[in-house]
Amino acid sequence: MITLLDRPIWSALTTTHKGLAEGDGLARRYQPGFLPMAGMAVDTSQAATDFAAFVRPGETLYVLQADPVLAPAGLETVVATEAVQMIAQHVPVAAADEAIVALGAEDAEEMLALATLTKPGPFSLKSQALGRFWGVRESGRIVAMAGERMRQPGFTELSGVCTHPDYRGKGYARRLSLHVAGQIVKAGARPYLHAFASNMAAIGLYETIGFSLRRSMHVAALRRPD
């Protein structure tokens, strides 16, 4: 069952997030406005054709999978890099943290501003439709956050971990990651996450809260020219 995570976007959009999917055949994408992410069931010419069919002119979609990503005809590769997928082996029980609060729809614009500044990965005003988010406020504004993104039966991705540059060094990323992972476990799923392979600081942080490497991954941004 864990092989669902080899192509996490495809597996999310054909199971738990099926209601947020667009496309048919051997490719799916998140509906515009949710996440600029898409996936294929297999790497075949038919899957590539199905994928290319839903990419709008000037649009860029991200693909994340275990196999190298090959751009379908008509699309160009804007970015191609290596990532890691980590999965929770044992999440330490976190002490109650009164600084961490649940974030809601009324926080969407502030969350997007923080994500735009810190670039933790694809994020939108509708990202809360994917899962729950929590944050830390200082002087009334959100200075750090983390939440849930992709979901598959039995698994939930920890994502969107970010801290405003002016508030780094306070341990917010670790505290929020530990909190979100604990909430995922409490809900009956197993937490997993992704990080760029070059981001050793993030990988080291996640190892301290019970995550270990599951496998290497490939991420690419594919764009259809205007």
Rank of each mutant, 00 (worst) to 15 (best):
E76T: 14
T77Y: 01
V78T: 08
V78G: 00
A80R: 10
A80E: 11
T81D: 10
E82H: 09
A83K: 14
V84P: 03
V84S: 01
V84M: 00
Q85M: 15
M86S: 03
I87S: 01
A88E: 03
Q89V: 12
H90D: 15
V91A: 07
V91Y: 05
A95H: 13
A96H: 13
A96C: 09
E98S: 11
E98K: 12
E98A: 14
A99T: 13
I100T: 10
V101C: 11
A102H: 00
A102F: 01
A102V: 04
A102D: 03
G104A: 08
G104E: 04
G104F: 00
A105V: 03
E106S: 14
E106T: 13
E106H: 15
D107L: 06
E109Q: 15
E110I: 08
M111C: 15
M111P: 03
L112D: 02
A113Y: 05
A113K: 11
L114G: 06
A115I: 07
T116F: 02
L117A: 14
T118A: 13
T118Q: 13
K119Q: 13
K119V: 09
K119H: 11
K119I: 09
P120F: 09
P120W: 01
P120S: 11
G121I: 04
G121A: 06
P122T: 09
P122R: 10
P122D: 02
F123V: 02
F123K: 03
F123Q: 03
L125Y: 00
K126I: 04
K126L: 14
K126W: 05
K126C: 08
K126D: 14
K126Q: 15
K126M: 11
K126V: 02
K126S: 13
S127N: 06
S127C: 05
Q128E: 06
Q128G: 02
Q128S: 04
A129H: 02
A129M: 00
L130E: 10
G131Y: 09
G131L: 08
G131A: 10
G131K: 01
G131R: 06
R132G: 02
R132A: 15
F133D: 04
F133R: 12
F133H: 14
G135D: 02
R137Y: 05
R137K: 08
E138K: 12
G140I: 03
G140M: 03
I142L: 03
A144N: 08
A144Y: 01
A144H: 02
M145W: 07
A146C: 15
G147A: 14
E148Y: 08
R149W: 09
R149Y: 12
M150E: 13
R151G: 14
Q152V: 15
Q152K: 12
Q152L: 15
P153L: 12
G154H: 12
G154Q: 11
G154Y: 11
F155K: 02
E157P: 03
E157V: 02
L158I: 01
S159N: 00
S159K: 07
G160M: 03
G160N: 04
G160E: 01
V161M: 12
V161C: 12
C162P: 04
T163V: 13
H164A: 14
P165T: 11
P165N: 12
D166Q: 13
Y167I: 04
Y167M: 07
Y167F: 14
Y167G: 00
R168D: 08
R168H: 08
G169P: 07
K170V: 11
K170Y: 14
G171T: 06
G171W: 06
G171K: 09
